[in-house]
Design a binder for these strands. Structure first.
Lengths: 128, 128
DNA sequence: TTCCTTGCAAATCGTTTGCATAATG
DNA sequence: CATTATGCAAACGATTTGCAAGGAA
C-alpha cells in the first residue's frame, strides 16, 4: 500500500498545522471545505486516520466521545473545559517515571499512558 | 425526581459489584439478561447512567470509544490491553500533586485528571 | 495501466429518547 | 393517585465502509 499524493490530504494536513485548538473531524471538514468545496466528510476521516497511523498527527480521545486531532505530535498534556469543550495544551513537563511506578507489581507490558485534565477554562470562569 | 426502587436497577448494581473487569453496557446487558430475560438494553443504559450520576459506580472512558463501568468508586488507575481490550486495576497510588503541577501557568480552574495506561496484558504476552 | 483516492450514500456502532404501559410509594 | 421506571423501537451522532469513477506513479 504505497502512499500516493493527494491534494485533499495535503490540505487537511496543512490546515491542522495552522491550528492549535485540536479540532474535531467535523471542524476540519467545515474549514477545509471553504478552500476545497468538493471534499467529502469520508475523505476527511480517512485522511485523519491515515495521518494519525503514520504518526504525522495525534488523535486525542478526551472523554467527550469525539476524536480531536493535533498536529503537534510531541508528548504533552491537555486540558479540556467541561463548560465549553475547548481543548488547550498544558505547559507542564511530561511525567517521567510514571511508567516505572505503574509497572511495579504488574504482570504484563505497560507501554504508555494517557493523561488529560479537566475543569473550567479561563474564558468560562470569567463569563459567570 | 425522587428515586424509586426498581428490581432492574438492583440487579444491574448487584451484578457490577461481583465483577472487577469493568464491563461495558453490552456485557452488563448480556449477563443481567440471564437472570432477568425481559430487561431491555435501554434500561441497562438508563440505570448505568443513573448510578454513575449518583456516584454509586464509575463510568470509565478508556480510549476505545466504549464506556466501561466500575463498581469501585475509589480513585485508582486502570490498564487497558491493546490486544484483547481487557481492563484491569493498577495497584499504584493516586498521584498527589499532579493537579498542582498542572495548575502552574494555567489560566482557569483545573478540577481533576484522567489517567490510564496501555500495553499488552500478561495473558496476551504469554500467548504469543 | 496499476492501484491508491475520492465522493457519495448507505451502513455500523454505541448510546439516547419518545411513548404507551407497568410498577412503586 | 402521582410519579418514576420499563420495554420496545425509532432516532442519534460520530465514524466507517462499499462501490464506481477519478487521479497519481
Amino acid at each position: 500500500m504505497a502512499l500516493k499524493y493527494s491534494r485533499q490530504r495535503q490540505v487537511i494536513s496543512d490546515f491542522l498545522m495552522t491550528r492549535k485548538d485540536h479540532p474535531t473531524a467535523e471542524v476540519v471538514y467545515k474549514n477545509v471545505r471553504q478552500e476545497y468545496p468538493n471534499i467529502s466528510l469520508g475523505t476527511v476521516y480517512r485522511n485523519l486516520t491515515l495521518l494519525a497511523d503514520m504518526g504525522e498527527i495525534q488523535r486525542l480521545r478526551l472523554g467527550d466521545g469525539i476524536d480531536h486531532f493535533d498536529a503537534d505530535t510531541s508528548a504533552h498534556y491537555h486540558f479540556v473545559c467541561s463548560e465549553c469543550g475547548a481543548v488547550t495544551d498544558l505547559k507542564m513537563p511530561c511525567m517521567e517515571g510514571i511508567l516505572e511506578t505503574a509497572r511495579k507489581d504488574f504482570d504484563g507490558e505497560i507501554q504508555g499512558h494517557v493523561t488529560y485534565f479537566y475543569g473550567i477554562c479561563g474564558k468560562c470562569t470569567k463569563c459567570k
